[in-house]
Nucleic acid binder design. Sequence first.
RNA 1: GGUGACGUAGCUCAGUCGGUAGAGCAGGGGACUCAUAAGCCCUUGGUCACUGGUUCAAGUCCAGUCGUCACCA
Length: 592
Amino acid sequence: MASENILVCVAWPYANGDLHVGHVAGAYLPADIFARYHRLKGNRVAMVSGSDAHGTPIVVRAEKEGKTPRQVFEYFHARFLETQKAIGISYDLFTHTDTRNHHQIAQQMFRRLLENNYLFKARQKQLYSETQGKFLPDRLVEGTCPICNYDKARGDQCDNCGNLLDATQLINPRSRIDGSAPVVRESEHYFLNLPALREALLSYLSDKDSYWRNTVLDFSRHYAGAAEPRAFTRDLTWGIPVPLPDAEGKCIYVWYEALLGYLTATVEWAALSGRPEAWQDFWYSKAGDVKIYNFIGKDNILFHTVLWPAVLLGMGRLGEPWDGAAGRAAEAPRFNLPYDVPANQYLNLGGQKFSKSLGVSLDVIDLAAKYGADPVRFYLTSIMPENKDADWSWSDFAQRNNSELLAKWGNLAQRTLSQIWKNFEGRIPAPGELSEADQAILAQSEAAFDDVGDALGAVRLREALGKAMELATATNQYLDREAPWKTIKIDKARAATQLYVAARVIDSLSVLLAPFIPFTCEAVRRQLGYTDPLFGEQTIEVVGDDSDRHSVLRYDDRRAAGAWRPSALQPGQPLGGEPKGLITRIELQEKS
RNA sequence: GGUGACGUAGCUCAGUCGGUAGAGCAGGGGACUCAUAAGCCCUUGGUCACUGGUUCAAGUCCAGUCGUCACCA
């Protein structure tokens, strides 16, 4: 089968607060599972994301803490790198939006959209703070709600009656920064002409019925069909400046340049890999063998299914050369649009939304350190909010870990390998003739590569994990029926065959489960005596020259030897030492 | 307010073209003992949110209600 190019785009975390398990369950983990599967499958994979470094909340936080916006975002960016490494999110590149590369391409985007007439200027009324000498973002204004008279309504929405507001309608508006009263001023902005792209967007959305989630599709179509122009610029200081002489003090609206990060991160990844053109293999459709997947949370759906495709369509004839030197080729390739946007719902904690300010949070690094990355990954996959919101429960976490991950998978490897270790000098025993039962379980393990693979390919991850676990259960059943611990007392050759068969299925399982619980699977692989790893290595590196130095997460796959195919375990292979338990029991005390 | 999705056993979820509900875990019972008191076998749990409609027949289609969530100047 021809190999595919799979671009795994992951939502960009906003760098003004730590990540929590909700983020992991919603976007990063599903993306990682999916990317690992495709790597094992032998496809060309690039998984990219980064920190969203710009925008108002970072400026506000910086002002509050007496820091620069850069200091704030760099602090969280560094923590993002550690967090994602700890939980094993295998980005080919996790960068950020304040790189030279990103700035340059974002300004290119703006120019091309303007040239192609998808941006137009219009005046907009906005609240202006005279004490601060700048326009106030809606959310930084407070006042009395014109609908319900609640006196602490925010500029974008009233928390009391729930209605969306226009900040200029607020009665007695005041700045949330210094309490002063802002005035209404007109400001000129660029707007993205979505109506002009409506037909193209609806056409793009027209063939997604068979595989898009129903939480995504109808919603997107409805919005695309009624799309109005949307502001593309903001009066901001911390962002990417609009590249026009008469646009001082205006930046590209942070959402659009953050979305562009999928493209700019791929460009940066290609450059760092020493093949600067490689990004085109994912973004320009040459042979129809490219698929772009966007892993996001449900709050971001419209941005990825409508606004981002609109930008890509609008840039449309952007040619090959980013420097523009070669001009616009008449037949320049078009950008690939997202093939699938498998948006997840939310993961809550004790029925409440994750919220740092309310103390509703779970630190990912802590969890990984205390319980191991795989138990957390396993549990989060089991409850992954693919169709509806899910809830983190400590008792459920412990139960899943002890009764499923440990009992079925960890124990299966342990019981098999320890018998081999004790009775066959620590080497994979040589099988004799295979019985029907032996052949049946081996056949089941081979079929699992298709079953589990199909579900993974369709981004039905919970289902895929369930199917892989079924094989583990079947193998436990096989062992109980065959009882090699009894056989060995009367027929050692037969016991050798039984344990060889079990070890071989476990070897297959170490691949089938690897996308979900890579750390445990690597450990089993080492115990089976392999010396090369399934996956590559994640590293945090500093890249760029003096004026553009930044830290990134990278993935080096040169040693990766894993392949999505049934085990060909060699008899005689020495085990990698005395088998040890893979999973630790979780005993719950105080937490519920 | 508008749009969309979701609401099935204690928990997490399946239910394809409509034919009176399934799995894993938890709970109960049993035989074994290689294994981290794990594994295996058997088993108890459901007015499928509510109301009305279409139909010989609805968890499954239609309308409405309630609840949850997200998005929308």
